[in-house]
Design a protein around this nucleic acid. Structure first.
Lengths: 214, 214
DNA sequence: TTTTAATTCAGTTGATTGACTTAATGTGGC
DNA sequence: GCCACATTAAGTCAATCAACTGAATTAAAA
């Protein structure tokens, strides 16, 4: 691959990824064909997705990886900032904040949060998401920190509540993204307030008293 | 429509609804055609969905309505039991418990929780779900009760946290349903424990302290 | 300039889709 | 026995899809 050729290739790849992300977020995975993505990306070659990504799954994976890496880089900063804190809220912040901060960086309208919801909802692609997420080292570090703070919580409860936190981050960010895209209301501070709201809620959720089993 | 004809029609309608619910839950809305539903329902008439429900949306609506009514009937019992309690946890219970109880009644494997996630995830059908949900009188009654208990919470926070509760119920029940269908582990008590876990978590989430805006 | 490889593109194939049409089936009412 | 009607079946239709083919285009390298 030559340098300039790489340049054009990357331009097309990026255009396909952006178009795919947007269309998937707007209409759902099942309602968008590879043709529509290529056309929305301004290519008259309907096989562009197949050529550049080997197929639909390759495109999805590329989109997820790009955002996943950027989010993990933000998360690294947060982890370094909290050091070895043993305050639960610090670690919840490390879990939550990178996501809305990333979305704020993307500007408005962003599509990534809604895209993620679509991929998560697809029974065949579900595993792809968790696999991709758990490959991020700084996320794993945060999960360790949380685990440490919640040592006294029964293992099964900790497990379930962790899943709740994951769902909350994904879904609430998608909802806010949707609201921002539609209403276009106060963009400044919106993501910060979302981060606060999620941190509050997830901290409360994790520390809630456990009803003893009957 | 004659009586016996109605009998056969209902059998086919029910078969189509069951098959559709299962296929949608397993593979996602976009991956299942009306033909496949008819075939899975044991009909060689590929236009059965169109004939009985007027189309895909009609089938989805019928499935949602059926379960929605049954859940609301369970919720009625819970509301009558708590009376005019002012304890938050009672009202959270009224919100949460009807769903896992309904799923427990359906037996294993059930598909409704995963089906609901699929419909909720579809950008075009989202409104259909909330519209259907808010048409249930006992759900509205519960929302009033919750609102009353959370009067001191800022309106926007109450709004967002209510959405969090909704997502949690939907997503966690779907996850448990999936686990039950795959692992088939201890079915007895599983839904009860899910109800407890959700009630604990949502109560904690709703009562968490609110970070003041900067 | 010529070569070379990456990329784009138009066109084809075979399968699948939802919507539609028409005929066959079966059932209750007369 | 016969009719009217709801239901099922079977076949057709145009549209759309992903995958593939081979030619045209592009631009760097020789």
């Amino acid at each position: 691959m030559t340098v300039a050729a790489a340049g054009t290739e990357l331009a097309t790849r990026a255009a396909l990824m952006a178009a795919g992300e947007r269309l998937f977020a707007e209409h759902g995975l099942g309602a968008v064909s590879n043709r529509q993505i290529a056309e929305a990306a301004g290519r008259r070659n309907v096989t562009a997705v197949s050529y550049h990504f080997g197929g639909r799954t390759g495109l999805l994976r590329a989109i997820m990886t790009e955002h996943g890496e950027r989010v993990d880089r933000i998360r690294e900063r947060h982890v370094r900032a909290v050091g070895d804190s043993s305050a639960l809220r610090d670690w919840v912040g490390c879990l939550v904040r990178p996501v809305p901060e990333h979305l704020a960086e993307l500007g408005s309208p962003s599509w990534n949060a809604r895209f993620s919801v679509q991929v998560m909802a697809d029974p065949a692609l579900r595993s792809l998401v968790t696999e991709e997420a758990l490959s991020r080292p700084w996320l794993r570090r945060v999960l360790d920190g949380l685990h440490h703070c919640l040592a006294e919580l029964p293992a099964d409860v900790r497990q379930v509540r962790g899943g709740m936190g994951r769902h909350l981050i994904t879904q609430i960010c998608a909802e806010r993204e949707r609201a921002l895209a539609e209403g276009g209301s106060d963009r400044h501070g919106s993501w910060e307030r979302t981060a606060d709201a999620l941190t509050d809620a997830i901290t409360g959720l994790l520390t809630a008293p456990v009803t003893p089993r009957a």
